[in-house]
Nucleic acid binder design. Structure first.
Length: 474
RNA sequence: GGCGGCAUAGCCAAGUGGUAAGGCAGAGGACUGCAAAUCCUUUAUCCCCCGGUUCGAAUCCGGGUGCCGCCUCCA
């Protein structure tokens, strides 16, 4: 049984699927005009963990994640951007669509590296404008909109339950005090938002609509696509906390008003990942990508494991020190799982494995408490249970954790292998073999010198009982 | 100004009424020619501060302090 903390009711709620055969899940996906950073990935890991937990519970998830590929982006913004990839693409005459395709592919590559289960549908916003127009018309027909001159706005005072999700109180936000007259002159109040905007110069994406040539507002994107693929009501909506207001509040108000349904029954929000105690941003130049991490020797699985050491609703302050501690812990776990003998020296009680199983399942079921689940993994691997039993537990648990618990960490003998299946370079293997010979002949000074050279080449020698040192990348 | 979150050992981090999980680092031991790796043992009388409720609170209530986020595109 899985329970999740729901932002609307502000408490843990048991997941009772609307339909017995599938759990409908919608995730606010990436805007594909840049590489996703590790903060984005932490949020998408929440979706992945949720999908895996749902499966672990014997249920079938149906996952929808949108791709925002029409930018809501002006030509001049595209050209002013500091992003080197975009700047280069524009200079090469690439269209916004081509740029979006490039970053969409990059996003999927990152997802694979993070070992995310794929969603069932990845609807592109740019190909769902007719659905957005249909929803806007539906709302217009219900008399909850107003506007003129190619602009259509949603009147939030006509939405039942507006503010339930975010706690927003009309007229209380700072926005009320800093309304930009030039932009909002057509709006009755700051909280109202645009369903449709009139065409303006320099915009690449434009569509014909009942309100004239223009483009859809941002919030209606998710409302329309969620309804199309998941219906008027579905089980879970996932997103980052920063989207709680206004985006989630608005898309919820819109969808509920348009369809009369409840939209998402449960809202889960991922806490932010901060770097050096600050939210990542271009201006602070602290936006790390997966490639940045890899260039510092941190693999995607190291990062995934590190994320799992915190609960998803706990803000994470990313530091290289804590990431390093996690990477070491993961490496040791893998080492321990692969090194376990077939049978435990002292056996281990028959019910012990079941106890670990139960505790792991309870942790995951309790609002996806991955850190608690990891504690169970550590305890199990240090227990007296036989190796094959522990490895079976790891196999089961890794369907949820997805960090590769049973991955081989190091080669069995000198030169045989290195982490990730890479082989140590031949010259390093030669050094290791020469050192072994020196040790057998008790020429320790020479052996130690060779060991130092191997270290300089980036490898540690792991001496075993048989004397033949394995190599491990440092 | 409004709304929300967080404060637990050197560091990261679970725990939301019954007497502090787990990881990293550190210490001691085993192993080793010495190391490394590995294994074993060990490390918070106490959970930001001040009151209160309770037989009992890190956990509940009231009041502070500090940090972060949202209210504008934002995971």
């Amino acid at each position: 049984m899985l329970s999740l903390y729901d932002t609307v009711s502000r408490k843990k709620v048991a997941l009772v699927p609307l339909r017995p055969d599938r759990v409908g899940i919608y995730t606010c996906g990436p805007t594909v005009y840049r590489y996703v950073h590790i903060g984005n990935l932490r949020t998408y890991l929440l979706t992945d963990l949720l999908l895996r937990a749902v499966r672990f519970d014997g249920l079938a998830p149906f996952s929808v994640q949108n791709i925002t590929d029409m930018g809501h982006m002006h030509q001049e913004q595209l050209e002013q951007t500091e992003d080197k990839v975009i700047a280069a693409a524009r200079a090469a005459g690439k269209t916004a669509t081509e740029i979006a395709e490039f970053f969409t592919a990059a996003y999927f590559r990152d997802c694979r590296r993070m070992n995310f289960l794929p969603s069932d549908v990845y609807p592109r916003a740019s190909t769902h404008v007719p659905e957005m127009i249909a929803m806007a018309k539906e709302l217009e027909g219900k008399g909850v909109t107003y506007g003129e001159g190619g602009f259509l706005y949603f009147d939030v005072t006509k939405a039942k339950g507006y503010g339930e999700l975010s706690g927003a109180v009309l007229g209380e936000g700072e926005a009320a005090g800093r309304t930009d007259e030039s932009i909002h002159r057509r709006k009755n109040r700051p909280e109202d938002f645009s369903l449709w905007l009139a065409a303006d110069p320099g915009r690449e994406f434009l569509w014909e609509s009942p309100w004239g040539l223009g483009w859809p507002g941002w919030h209606i994107e998710c409302s329309a696509m969620a309804e199309k693929y998941l219906g008027k009501e579905f089980d879970i909506h996932v997103g980052g906390v920063d989207l709680r207001f206004p985006h989630h509040e608005n898309s919820r108000a819109m969808a509920m008003t348009a369809t009369g349904g409840r939209f998402a029954l449960l809202w889960v929000h991922a806490a932010h990942l901060l770097v050096d105690g600050r939210k990542m941003s271009k201006s602070l130049s602290n936006e790390y990508t997966l490639d940045d991490l890899e260039s510092r020797g941190v693999s995607p699985m190291d990062f995934r494991y590190h994320c799992l050491t915190l609960h998803y609703r706990t803000p994470m302050n990313f530091t290289w020190a804590s990431q390093g501690a996690s990477a070491k812990a993961l490496a040791r776990l893998r080492e321990a799982f692969s090194g376990k003998g077939e049978t435990g020296a002292r056996g281990g009680r028959a019910d012990e494995a079941e106890g670990f199983r139960r505790r792991f399942r309870e942790a995951i079921g309790d609002d996806l408490n991955a850190p608690r689940a990891l504690a169970v993994v550590h305890e199990a691997v240090r227990s007296d249970l036989p190796g094959d039993v522990v490895r079976e537990l790891a196999r089961e648990w890794d369907t949820v954790l997805g960090v590769g618990l049973l991955e081989e960490v190091s080669g069995k003998a000198a030169g045989e292998g290195a982490p990730g299946g890479e082989f140590a370079p031949g010259e390093v293997v030669d050094l290791a073999l020469r050192r072994d010979r020196c040790r057998r002949e008790r020429r320790f000074a020479e052996a130690d010198a060779l060991r130092e050279k191997i270290r300089e080449a980036g490898y540690d020698v792991l001496d075993g009982k048989d004397g033949a040192g394995r190599l491990r990348k440092r």
